[in-house]
C-alpha cells in the first residue's frame, strides 16, 4: 500500500459544552479516495475543517506528510501543542484543497478570476501564467465556455466545478470535499460527481464527505462511517455496504440506501 499522507490520532473538538469529535483516528494513503458518511451532526464537516486548520482542535494530532498540521510541539516531551505562525499555517493550507457544500466562490470575480486568485495572490504567479493555467483547469471541468461568467450567472453544478478548479489551481496533494453535491438540484449532481470521478482516476488523494452512496460505492477505496463524533467503522465499500459489522452502521445505511 502507498504511504500515509494524512494521519489523525485522538482528534477531539468541542463547541462549548458539546464534544463534537471524540477522539478520531484515521489514515489516508496517497492516491486513496476515502468517503466519510454518517448522520447529520455526527461531526463530518468539523473533522474535515480540522484537517486544514480552519478549526482549532482541543486534543490530538493531525499530520500531513509527517508534519503536524496547525501546531508545533513544545515542552520537554513534546506534549504541549502551540499554534503555528500564520505563515506556516498558510503554507500547509496550500497543499490541501477544499471544496465546500455551498461553493463559496468569490462573487465579484469571474470563473477564471476565481481560479486565478490563489496562484496570483498566494503563489505569486504572473497573471498571464495564472490565467493560462486557470483556463486549462476550467476546460478540464468542462467549463471552458463559461470562464468569463460571474458565479451569479452559473448554475449550482457549474459553480461547484469552478470551485473544484479553484482548489486544484493550488496544485494540492490532498483534496477535501464537504458534501459537494448536497446543495445541488438533483439533475446537476451528476456533472460534479463526474468531475470528482475523473479526479480520483487521475490519482488525486481525496477525502469526501458525502451522502451519495452510489458514488461512495463506485469510487471510494475505503468508506468510513461516523456517528456522534466517533468513527464507528471503516472498510472497503463492498464490505461496509453489504456486511456492516455494527448495528449503528446498519441502521444508518437502511435509511439512506
Amino acid at each position: 500500500m502507498n504511504d500515509v499522507i494524512l494521519r489523525a490520532r485522538g482528534v477531539r473538538k468541542r463547541f462549548g459544552a458539546t464534544e463534537v469529535l471524540k477522539g478520531i483516528d484515521l489514515d489516508v494513503r496517497s492516491g486513496e479516495v476515502l468517503c466519510v458518511i454518517g448522520p447529520s451532526g455526527s461531526g463530518k464537516s468539523t473533522l474535515l475543517r480540522c484537517f486544514n486548520h480552519l478549526e482549532q482542535i482541543d486534543a490530538g494530532r493531525v499530520w500531513m506528510d509527517g508534519e503536524l498540521i496547525g501546531y508545533e510541539q513544545h515542552g520537554p516531551s513534546g506534549h504541549v501543542l502551540r499554534e503555528r505562525r500564520p505563515r506556516d499555517i498558510r503554507r500547509q493550507r496550500e497543499r490541501i484543497g477544499m471544496v465546500f457544500q455551498r461553493f463559496h466562490l468569490f462573487p465579484h470575480r469571474t470563473a477564471v478570476q476565481n481560479v486565478m486568485e490563489g496562484p496570483v495572490a498566494v503563489k505569486g504567479l504572473s497573471r498571464v501564467q495564472a490565467e493560462k493555467q486557470a483556463r486549462e483547469l476550467l476546460d478540464h471541468v468542462g467549463l471552458a465556455d463559461r470562464a468569463d461568467h460571474y458565479p451569479g450567472q452559473l448554475s449550482g453544478g457549474q459553480q461547484q466545478r469552478v470551485a473544484i478548479a479553484r482548489a486544484l489551481a493550488m496544485e494540492p496533494a490532498l483534496m477535501l470535499f464537504d458534501e459537494p453535491t448536497s446543495a445541488l438540484d438533483p439533475e446537476l449532481v451528476g456533472e460534479v460527481l463526474g468531475v470528482m470521478r475523473d479526479l480520483a482516476r487521475s490519482g488525486m488523494t481525496m477525502v469526501v464527505v458525502t451522502h451519495e452512496m452510489g458514488f461512495a460505492r463506485e469510487v471510494a477505496d475505503r468508506v468510513l462511517f461516523m456517528d456522534q463524533g466517533a468513527v464507528v467503522e471503516a472498510g472497503t465499500p463492498e464490505l461496509l455496504f453489504t456486511d456492516p459489522r455494527h448495528e449503528r452502521t446498519r441502521a444508518f445505511l437502511s435509511t439512506v440506501l
Partner: peptide
C-alpha cells in the same frame, strides 16, 4: 464562507 474559502487556498 468567503473568508474560509480564501483561507483554504492559503490567503
Amino acid at each position: 464562507g468567503q473568508r474560509e474559502a480564501g483561507a483554504s487556498i492559503g490567503m
